[in-house]
Amino acid sequence: MAALGQRRRNSADLECEIDMVPIMNMFLVLIPFLLASSTTLFLNGINTSVPVMAQTSTLQQPEKKSEVKITATVKLENNQFVLQASSDELSEEKLKGLDAVVKNTNGKHQYAQLATALHNIKSLYPKSDTLILMPDDAIIYDRIVKTMDVARAFNGQTLFPNVVVSGQVQ
């Protein structure tokens, strides 16, 4: 009995050591490879489109008055934003009331003011979802992207998710 107990104790005392060296070697090869191929820049995409000629369908149902949709047009000029609202279902007078001109202050573009004007339209006509951007020829791409950001959402609130970029018709 004593001999059996002795044998059990001896087998439990045996330390089992796993050879970690090959695993370490593999890690040392994998980590530099993955570090070299990892990206530090995170790329995203903004969906947009250019206007195309479309055939009108006579089968389209007329929209209800309660679902008035406003199409906002923002002209990007060198020293200001010009916001104009358009809709088939509202009078000229009502649409004029939604228009706004946001001038630069101290040479800086006032994106927050533009967002406030867009928010005003969105709160009155929540079904509105399309905005047409009309930049001047000299406007740089960076400013177009910043304006798109403001037009899509401001302070976490969705404004006009569909932004279409269009050249001005002279």
């Binding site: 790329l43 995203n44 995409g45 903004i46 969906n47 947009t48 250019v50 798109m148």
Partner: peptide, 10 residues
């Protein structure tokens, strides 16, 4: 291709 996805940085 009338639809675009503008590549931007986060």
């Amino acid at each position: 291709y009338p639809n675009f996805q503008l590549a931007v940085l986060e």
